[in-house]
Nucleic acid binder design. Structure first.
Lengths: 120, 120
DNA sequence: CTGATCTACAACCATTTGGTTGTACGATAT
DNA sequence: ATATCGTACAACCAAATGGTTGTAGATCAG
């Protein structure tokens, strides 16, 4: 099932790649652009003050992190946003969020126990 | 207002620090541990196969990313999870998610226009 | 066919990262 | 008082990062 893929915990290496890919302003901008529309690699290069090869490397990093996909069209390579990577990242943050809420819950429990102790 | 702090877009450098901090398995584990409970830096060191100084550096990276806080207690430094960083990270992913949904919306619009063209 | 465009990839370089060891210092326990 | 514990920080090192230039292969336009 597709759901299984979401519930499957990504490997550490996968997660490393994901967050590392997001830890760069240029790459985040690329993700936003190609999620909103289609860009070739050279189309993206026009947007930034860096060489084609540099952008190419950024796209490769994003691709390895499942945040974008590339598809050959004629002599161009079309880059598109890939929802899968984003969902993975959100899922991982959700897990940390759950740990936080569990802790908050335990604290509430402890306070409740204290209250009980105060009862007659 | 507190709400303003959440709505304020974090700087690129802040976001870089955040995702970079999360892009390491040891650091993610530290975040999970100190979110669930309290640990001193040397208490954390006992958990990993690396030197005290290495763990100290990881904690420093997490602290700069607002993912943990440190508080001196006696001769120990207590590390605690900081919800602020997590929320920031989730907010940033939410923004990308929004771009995705907007695009999905536009595609639906385009399909709807095509349908209209087909009408008499 | 020829030339221009888009891509891939290697080689190189400066900086950052993630680890180490070693030294120093305040807080604690004996 | 002294030894030990927890921390801070500097110096060092290998590997990874983020950028460059240069070369070469496909694809398209004229």
């Amino acid at each position: 099932m597709v759901v299984d893929q979401l519930k499957t915990k990504p490997s550490d290496a996968e997660t490393d790649r994901l967050f590392h890919a997001l830890a760069d302003a240029t790459r985040r901008d690329i993700v936003a652009r190609v999620t909103a529309g289609e860009y070739s690699v050279s189309g993206l290069t026009a947007l930034y003050a860096m060489s084609f090869a540099a952008v190419q490397k950024h796209v490769a990093v994003l691709e390895r992190a499942s945040l974008v996909t590339k598809e050959k069209r004629g002599r161009e390579q079309i880059v598109r946003g890939n929802h899968e990577g984003l969902q993975k990242a959100r899922h991982l943050l959700d897990q940390l969020e759950m740990i936080w809420r569990q802790r908050a819950g335990r604290i509430a429990d402890i306070l409740a126990e204290d209250d009980e102790r105060d009862l007659p």
